[in-house]
């Protein structure tokens, strides 16, 4: 039938906090998606239904929002998400080489996850650190002036 999953008390408390800050319940939609993604890594169909139910909107309305934004993950991602900047300054400074190297090392292209679920690789628009291009982010950490030499060492930090 409908949602199998329910929100945890923690998630609900966090979402309640966001709801309290806005004039209408559904205005907390993006915050709620972020919260769930924070806890679960991604937003499954079941999670989506649970959040929609909690916000008293339809799954359609919520999914319309969730699929608009590129950092709401509606498919499972690996334990670590690599966001590689593919925008102009990084292009000029050679992000494509870094991309090639990640592909070789991890065997995954943009949009893919390693079979062991360790990494997901995604392209990302300008990370706003163009004076230190090329750049990438893994989870919440930013790496700048990335060279082919650093890469192995950076990746080794994540399990």
């Amino acid at each position: 039938m409908i949602a199998q999953e329910t929100l945890t008390p923690e998630e609900m408390a966090e979402i309640d906090h966001e709801i309290a800050l806005v004039p209408v319940r559904r205005a907390a939609a993006i915050e709620a998606l972020k919260i769930v993604q924070q806890h679960r890594g991604w937003v499954s169909d079941d999670s989506l239904h649970a959040v929609a139910g909690y916000l008293e909107i339809s799954p359609e309305e919520l999914d319309s929002v969730s699929t608009f934004y590129n950092l709401v993950f509606r498919r499972p991602v690996g334990r670590n998400v690599i966001l590689l900047c593919d925008s102009i300054s990084c292009y000029v400074m050679g992000y494509e080489k870094i991309y090639e190297q990640i592909r070789e090392r991890l065997g995954i292209a943009f949009g893919q996850t390693t079979p062991d679920g360790r990494f997901t690789l995604l392209p990302n628009a300008c990370l706003g650190t163009c004076d230190h291009a090329p750049a990438l982010m893994i989870n919440n950490e930013l790496f700048r002036n990335v060279t082919e030499n650093d890469l192995d060492e950076i990746l080794d930090r994540y399990h």
Binding site: S87, S89, A125, C126, G128, T129, C130
Partner: peptide, 9 residues
């Protein structure tokens, strides 16, 4: 998010 822009950061 304008590519090439990093001043507000």
């Amino acid at each position: 998010m304008e590519p090439g822009t990093f001043k507000d950061r």
